[in-house]
């Protein structure tokens, strides 16, 4: 049954998938609580532009993705200050710019090919050794950063003004957090694909919000839900020959429905 682990590509897919399952909801919990759920979509479109640029300019696509999503992340933070009353507006502006740029670069590179498709929808076989090193490196940076600045990110998510008044360097930390979000996107897109990264940041968090007992507990449960989704998703994609990203995200949606149903049954009793 587990003969699939004899294949190097499956081992890599699982290694990458499990990292993604920890990182996405970890960052996602803060993103959702700051009501910036759209930020994932925006940064992943910027990554797509970066991948196209990478293909065009001969740069390794994941590096292009990282570069472009970092620029977009900083752009969002800068605009957020200009439109302080409308946090979502800065995200929409950068989203539009990213889509436009991605479309133009893809047409320029004439690169709407299988390679690009693997970035769009995720691909198990596509994860190579270099990808694993990039994913591992970025994951470590993200984990250590959240470990160090957990209480800062929590305070800023709960009450940004209060955090500022407490003397926290809020603007710097905001940029840093958005950079971490950009890294999360790049880490995840190889496995679930650029189209579905944002779902993995949001759906497990939505599940855990239904039953969590504290903020820490919300993070913990959402990581558990994401891990279950990735494992079931990758197995079914291997056995049923489905796209891994889609299988993972659909599994997480099924979990959400199941949690809603169980909650409902409990309430009826």
């Amino acid at each position: 049954m587990f003969e699939l682990f004899n294949y190097g590509f499956m081992q890599r897919a699982f290694a990458a998938g499990l990292l993604v399952a920890v990182i996405c909801p970890l960052i996602g919990t803060f993103v959702v609580m700051r009501r910036l759920s759209m930020i994932g979509d925006t940064l992943s479109h910027a990554s797509l532009a970066g991948i196209a640029a990478g293909m065009l300019g001969g740069l390794y696509p994941l590096w292009g993705a990282l570069l472009f999503s970092l620029i977009a992340a900083i752009g969002i933070e800068k605009l957020r200050k200009r439109f302080s009353q409308y946090a979502e507006l800065s995200i929409s502006i950068v989203l539009s710019a990213s889509i436009g740029l991605a479309v133009v670069l893809i047409s320029l590179a004439n690169s709407f090919n299988a390679d690009l498709m693997s970035y769009l929808f995720g691909s198990i076989i596509a994860v190579n050794a270099l990808d694993i090193y990039i994913i591992l490196g970025l994951s470590i940076i993200i984990l250590v950063s959240v470990g160090l600045f957990y209480k800062e990110f929590f305070y800023m998510a709960f009450d940004e003004e209060g955090a500022e008044l407490a003397g926290m360097p809020v603007s710097g930390l905001n940029v840093y957090f958005t950079v971490l979000t950009a890294m999360t996107i790049v880490v995840s897109m190889r496995v679930v694909g650029m189209m579905m990264v944002s779902s993995l940041m949001v759906v497990p968090v939505a599940c855990s919000l239904l039953i969590s007992k504290s903020f820490k507990n919300t993070i913990f449960l959402s990581v558990i839900f994401a891990l279950i989704s990735v494992v079931i998703g990758l197995f079914s994609s291997y056995w049923l020959d489905l796209a891994p990203g889609g299988s993972i995200v659909l599994t997480s949606i099924f979990i959400l429905i199941a949690v809603l149903a169980v909650k409902r049954i409990f309430r009826m009793q």
């Binding site: 609580m33 209480k151 929590f154 709960f158 955090a163 919000l209 504290s214 903020f215 820490k216 919300t218």
Partner: peptide
Amino acid sequence: FPATVEEVVSAN
């Protein structure tokens, strides 16, 4: 917001 009273007070 899913924070406990303790988490909110600890923030400060």
